[in-house]
Amino acid sequence: MDAYLAAIVSVMLIYVLLALGLTLQYGLTGLINFGMVGFFAIGAYTSALLALHGVPVVLSVAAAAVVAGISAWPIGLASLRLRDDYFAIVTLGFAEIVRLTLTSEKWLTNGVQGLSRIPPIYEGTGTAAAFVIVAILLAVTVAAIFLIHRVAHSPFGRIIAAIRDNEEAVQAIGKDPARFKIQVLVVGSALAGIAGALYAHYVTYIVPEQFVALATFYVWMAVIMGGVGRVSGAVVGTAILMFFLEGSRFLGDFLPWISSVQMASIRIGVVGLALVLFTIYRPQGLMGDFTKR
């Protein structure tokens, strides 16, 4: 049971990193990024490939952040002049291109067979090792929370909040919104890259099918349920998401006539229903302004 709990917390912390990246991009700046999973995948494969070639895990994870961040830069340059909805479509398309590239470039990624025997975050077995991994992931997550919190409550954070409210007015006071938006896209994507790297070293086996659009929408669900634009919302929202995802796993015990394939769909349905209920009854999210509905 301890190992199971540690596993849930580990996955949750990896998702919290993704949610923090999206909080920076969407919650604080208003950038609709439907391609988080693409940067997650880039981070996972970068770190896994480097570690498989003997690079220490710490350096592999750092390289994953850099590569994921850099890969966001040209997308930012090319797309930030687009309207919000077109930008969202570009990011969605980007993530699909990443997944298809990972599938087709067998010489690099081993195609659909994926990469196995990825060095773990921490060498060791048993419950103690699981908790060491949780501690490492927690340390990274706390550092990311500090980073986003510092950015949000700074002059930089003031400008990105202004961009979210009115981009033309930001230009009218002599600030270049594109510069801020590109930086936000790069930093958020670097966080997603770190999350991907940690995921690869946590599960030690990755295939392109782990990086489908559904993962992006889980992150969106977490951010919306937690409270858009709230750092605490990213954490709480991810916890709620994991509660519904993992809690619904036990539905099978009460509904034995339902196959495991059907149950997988039901679990997604349960999370979707939770999102609908949140949107109706608490649109500002659990950590949003309590004075508003």
């Binding site: 003031r158 909040a161 202004a162 409210d165 009115n166 033309e168 009218a172 006071i173 002599g174």
Partner: peptide
């Protein structure tokens, strides 16, 4: 076109070059 989620002071602070 105020920055609606920022306070009056923050609106002014945002404009400092």
């Amino acid at each position: 076109r105020e920055f609606s989620h920022l306070s009056v002071r923050e609106n002014l602070m945002a404009a400092i070059p």
